[in-house]
Structures are given as C-alpha cells and as structure tokens.
Design a protein around this nucleic acid. Structure first.
Lengths: 220, 220
DNA sequence: ACCTCTACTTTGAGTAGTCAAACTAAATAA
DNA sequence: TTATTTAGTTTGACTACTCAAAGTAGAGGT
C-alpha cells in the first residue's frame, strides 16, 4: 500500500504522462511544478519510487510509470472522481468546492466505501468535470476532445472542463457551462483572442482564449 | 490545527479522563495502552502537547486536558460520531464496520462537509452506538448509564454500547441488541458470571459479565 | 530504613518526507 | 568551439513521529 504521499506522486506522473510529447516520459520539473515541491525533493522520491518498482527513472531524462505505478495511479483517480461525483450528486455540494475535498478524501476512503459509493451512483462513467472514471480493474475511457480555443464557429457540446480552480468553475456555473451543455461558437476574434458563444438561449458571452483552453468540446 | 496524530492523543486523553478516578487526570500508561504506543513515545508527546497548550502535564503524575485540548478532542469526537451515523443511516453500511472507517475519516473530512452531514441527518444527538454527539460549539450530553453487568433483574432499555470491536457488534446485531432496544434481565448467576436476558419476544439468551459490561442500560 | 517493583523518563537511533544551497550535465547560443 | 543557461542532482539539515533499551522516582512491602 503506497502512502498518500506516494499516491500523489503517482497520480501527478500519470496525468502529466498523458500530455507528454516524448512517449509517456515525464520531466521531473513538471512533477515538482505540479506538486509544489522542490526539484531535489522530487529527485529523491523518484529513486525511491524506482526502488519500489512504481516507476522507471533515468537520471536527467525523466520518469515513466511502470505497471504497478499506473495501476495505483488509476485507483487514486478512480477514488478521486467517484468522490467528486458523490459529493455533487448525493451530498449536494457545489461543483466548484468538490475538488479540494476529494484531494484529501481520496487517500482516506476504504475500498469498501468506494464500492458503496459506486453502487449508489449507479457506476457512473464520468465525474462532474466530465473526466472518465476508471473501473475497479483499471480500465479508463481515453476519448479526447478539442479545446474550444482551437475550434471554428459551429455547434458543440461541452464534454469536459480540464481545470480545477474554484473561481473559474463558479464562473462557468453562473453561465450554465456544465459538461453535457450544448453551446454555439458564434464568432472569434483571433487578434483580440476573444471568443463569442451562446449557451442555450441566453445572451451571448465573451470568453478569452486561456479560459477557452479548458473547455473541451465535441462538434454536433 | 493539530495534526491527526495529535488529534488521536487528545481524543484518547479525553475519553480516558471521563473514567478517571483522580479528577480528570490520566496516567500516561493508560494513553500508551489505548493508542498502542510505547511509554517513551507518549512521554515525549506529552511534553509537546504541553508546549502547544493542549494539556497540562506533571511528570510522573499524569496529564489533564487544558481548554484548547478539550475543545479539539470534542471536535474530533463530533466528527467521528457524525461520520458513524452517516455511514449507517445514509450509506447503509453495517454498524459493525463503521468504527474503523470513521477512525480514519475523522481526520480527513472538512468542516463544510461535516456540517452538510449534520444537516442531512437532521442534527442527530447520538451515534449508532448510542454515544452522544457534541455540538459544533462543543456541548455534549454527559448522561451516564449503568452497565448491564451491574444491575438486578427487571426491564431495561439499551442506551449505549461502549465497545468497538466488530465481532462483538455483529453478535449483538444478530440478537437485535441495538441502542433503543427494550430488554429484560431475567436472572443472573453471580457465581458463574452469566446473565440471562430476553430481547423482545425472542428466546432468552445467555451473556457473560464481560460482554454485559459494555451494554449500558436504563431502568424502565 | 531498606528493598523491590512498577510506572515513567531519558537517550540514541530510525523512517518518511521535506527544503536550501552547492554542484553538474547537457542543451543552446555565441 | 567555448560560454552560458537550464534542468536536474547531491549534500546536509530539519520536522514529526516512532521504538528499544537503559535509567530513575516513588509507592508499597518487609
């Protein structure tokens, strides 16, 4: 059983490895950035994770998850996402507040309780941010979507919000921008970096490219 | 914000202090016993807790909680007991399995979530073992009850079960012995140390004095 | 008054995780 | 090719918690 510290490292490496250009290799700097730790701390931990067979680590080149590391990361992700879904659907907490809570609970909840939560929710496939929930055996849907920032005018469905900060999520909420929501990209000003979109039949709203980067959409 | 280790110490001291014969003073041996730690570890920690103003510690005489220590202990107890109630009433987990889970979650759940749980349960006054739940401001009902082991024949109501081990609780369950349950002490054999009792209109059951020590009852 | 036992304290050491600061390899620029 | 910058590594130190084992204070027995 990895400690909760180790779980955090594995989760970070897993998530960074999905965006990696170089195979699934992750630079240690990205890990220290993500976890808010110094570079030296991360180097030390990589050696330890290697000795525990969670990762393979090549000095100065980066780390990749080994099988047991990936398995552990998927379990943490599963717990995290089921907890988020639970907190929103059953506990009726605000979408925007749920991430931090889950960040802690993911290390504290037993398998038995996670299983119970999964049942109560009817084995959901996605969490409130639209992220896929790995199964108990570690399968995960790996569909990818285009960012609203990279897409032309047309009709879309919001599939995923890939950003956790609470203020941003509150703002999305206030404009009914939840996963599943249909929206229309009305126009974009490439020079100003501003996108105009319509959600249902509300007034059109303006959104910057950075904010649009986190909105993952599917054409429809 | 005390660490979860410190919370465990404070909770242990609080609970031991209620059984203390010497005012509210608790012997360090009792603490190390309760927490499963060596005596030296506890001595070290007592100095630390004193320096943090949680307890007052007199070498070789014992510890008593100071105000902030008692407050912290009551908050932990509140979280623990609300979590137990939540796991039984909402999550439908077995009474017997809930203690261990709560032992961990009590250190991981935020105030916001505890508040939500409290609302969902309708501000319960007691947990599934019949233990009183301290209020958010730290008030706690301190009613005491006699142990079934110390009481004569007659009709009683089971008010509290003061033991956490899962096997024991499973056995109680199987005989419908939950807090609130009416029961009759039919007879007792002081020499054999065996008590005969009837629960509702089931067959009479036999129970030893040790087991009866954890069953706290009210005459009725 | 002395001895002994028990409960407690002290000491020295270990684990897990962290940082700051000095150092170094390798990529990039000149 | 050499110099500079950047990313990563090493070292020494610290915090929080723990144990084992050696030492001691004080209560009770003789």
């Amino acid at each position: 059983m990895p400690s909760s510290t180790v779980e955090d490292y594995l989760k970070a490496i897993f998530q960074l490895s999905r965006k990696s250009t170089d195979g699934k290799r992750v630079a240690l700097g990205a890990v220290s950035e993500q976890l808010g730790l110094t570079a030296g701390t991360v180097t030390t931990m990589m050696k330890h994770l290697q000795s525990e067979d969670f990762v393979s680590y090549e000095p100065r080149r980066g780390v990749t998850l080994r099988e047991s590391g990936e398995k552990a990361a998927l379990q943490v992700l599963r717990r995290h996402r089921l907890i988020e879904a639970f907190l929103v659907d059953i506990m009726k907490l605000d979408w925007a507040d749920v991430h931090e809570e889950a960040e802690i609970l993911e290390h504290a909840i037993s398998d038995k309780l996670i299983q119970r939560i999964d049942e109560m929710l009817g084995h959901p496939s996605h969490d409130p941010h639209g992220d896929p929930i790995p199964t108990a055996t570690g399968e995960m849907d790996n569909a990818t979507f285009a960012a609203l920032a990279d897409v032309e005018s047309g009709h879309y469905q919001l599939m995923r919000v890939s950003r956790d900060d609470s203020e941003y999520l509150k703002w999305l909420s206030s404009h009914s921008l939840h996963p599943g929501q249909a929206l229309q990209l009305v126009s974009r000003d490439h020079f100003a970096g501003v996108i105009t979109l319509k959600v249902a039949d509300a007034e059109p709203i303006q959104i910057g490219e950075t904010a649009a980067q986190a909105l993952l959409v599917k054409k429809c």
